[in-house]
Amino acid sequence: MIGELGPEQRDALKDFLLSRPETALALVHALEADRGTFLGARDAEGSLAGVALVEEDCLAYLVANDPRAAMELGRALRPWKVETLVAEADWANRAWRAMTRTLPSLILHQQVLSVTPQALLALAEPAPIRLAHAEELPQLQALAHAMFWEEIGRPPATDRLNVHLQEEVEEGSVWVLERDGRVVFMARVACRCSAGAEVQRVYTVPNLRRRGIATAALGTLCRMLLAKLPRVVLRVSATNRKAQRLYRKLGFVLRGAVRLYTRPGGDR
């Protein structure tokens, strides 16, 4: 049994999402911001067994307890023309195949890590990070493009990425560390909600790595966020061992895994 979840089901929906706050953080944020459309799959007893969130930009998130719920939600997503699907790894492939017969142009296997205030590494002193300025957009675009190449091995959809970056700078979600007039570290706080914050686009320029810059800058950003929130979450490529070591050093622990799929022409 599947259908759109309305306001009268908000409490049950939030309880389901908070049972897996790390992999469902983006969904909790959308729910609290009253954004997007939620679809729910129910088990034989009528309890929620899976949830999908459809955003306006052809992006969908999916979390499910079992393969049946994942496949039902995948079928329910067919009319929505989803270009990018982020789903919990256990049933992600079944959800994608139920949603479309199109082979994905990209599949990313990502670990979901989180850190709490008690577990975060204590820093000797905070790094002087700040919000990015509009005039730094060309630098940020260059860093984001380099990060895409490093992680995926091919160029991004440049126009779309540049638009996203401009919006992120304007909304005040991109943090940077500057050295001698040059941005050497960037990170984006993608969302904040009662369940925590998600950090994305974490990147340090290659020639300044292994000097403690990312540890200090990201640690400072996490400390700021954790002063008011219960956790910070991020996703990292399952093959990026260097980044995983950095995050573990800061106190992050593995909480789950997701897969990101895109249709041809839908690379984010």
Rank of each mutant, 00 (worst) to 15 (best):
Arg97Gln: 13
Pro104Trp: 12
Leu137Ala: 00
Val233Ser: 06
Glu56Val: 10
Thr116Trp: 06
Leu48Asp: 06
Thr158Tyr: 13
Gly256Phe: 09
Pro155Phe: 01
Glu136Val: 02
Arg154Thr: 04
Leu177Glu: 08
Arg231Val: 09
Ile213Thr: 10
Ala49Leu: 05
Leu106Gly: 02
Glu88Leu: 00
Glu198Ile: 14
Leu177Gln: 11
Trp80Thr: 06
Pro7Cys: 09
Glu136Ala: 01
Gln200Pro: 04
Arg223Ser: 13
Tyr247Ala: 03
Ala187Asp: 01
Leu260Ala: 09
Glu83His: 13
Gly6Ser: 07
Ala187Leu: 02
Gly219Pro: 04
Ala257Gly: 11
Val176Lys: 03
Val54Phe: 04
Ile129Pro: 03
Ala124Tyr: 08
Arg35Tyr: 15
Gln9Cys: 08
Glu151Val: 03
Ala243Gln: 01
Pro264His: 02
Arg182Ile: 10
Asp267Thr: 14
Trp91Val: 07
Leu39Asn: 08
Ala134Lys: 04
Ser194Ile: 10
Pro117Cys: 09
Asp34Ser: 13
Met1Tyr: 15
Leu120Gln: 07
Val112Tyr: 03
Lys242Phe: 11
Gly40Phe: 09
Ala144Gly: 12
Ala70Lys: 05
Val86Lys: 05
Ala157Phe: 11
Leu113Trp: 13
Asn65Asp: 15
Arg268Tyr: 15
Leu229Lys: 05
Ser19Ile: 05
Glu150Cys: 06
Ser237Tyr: 12
Ala44Thr: 12
Ala87Lys: 00
Ala87Gln: 00
Met147Cys: 05
Leu131Pro: 07
Val189Lys: 03
Thr262Ala: 13
Pro128Glu: 05
Asp57Leu: 13
Glu168Cys: 11
Gln9Ile: 03
Arg78Trp: 13
Tyr203Arg: 00
Arg42Trp: 15
Ala243Gly: 14
Val115Lys: 03
Arg231Tyr: 10
Asp11Val: 15
Ala197Phe: 04
Gln139Arg: 01
Leu140Trp: 01
Arg211Asp: 01
Arg10Gly: 04
Val169Asp: 03
Leu48Gln: 05
Thr204Gly: 02
Val28Lys: 03
Cys191Asp: 12
Leu77Pro: 07
Arg75Trp: 14
Arg35Asp: 14
Gly74Tyr: 08
Gly6Pro: 03
His109Trp: 11
Arg20Thr: 13
Asp15Ala: 15
Ala52Pro: 06
Leu25Asp: 01
Gly212Asp: 03
Leu27Gly: 08
Arg255His: 12
Gln9Met: 14
Ala26Thr: 13
Gln9Asp: 12
Tyr261Ile: 10
Met71Glu: 15
Pro67Gly: 07
Glu170Leu: 14
Leu143Cys: 06
Arg130Thr: 05
Arg42Thr: 12
Asp90Met: 10
Leu85Gly: 00
Glu167Gly: 09
Ser194Gly: 08
Gln118Cys: 06
Leu59Pro: 05
Leu108Met: 14
Ala257Tyr: 10
Pro79Arg: 02
Glu4Asn: 00
Pro138Thr: 01
Thr102Gln: 14
Arg201Gly: 06
Val176Gly: 03
Thr204Cys: 05
Cys58Pro: 10
Asn93Lys: 13
Ile2Asn: 10
Glu135Arg: 02
Ala98His: 06
Ala26Lys: 11
Leu140Phe: 02
Asn207Phe: 02
Ser194Trp: 11
Ala190Glu: 15
Leu85Thr: 00
Leu161Trp: 02
Thr116His: 05
Glu56Phe: 09
Leu131Lys: 14
Val51Phe: 08
Ala124Asn: 12
Asp43Ser: 07
Lys228Leu: 07
Leu221Gly: 00
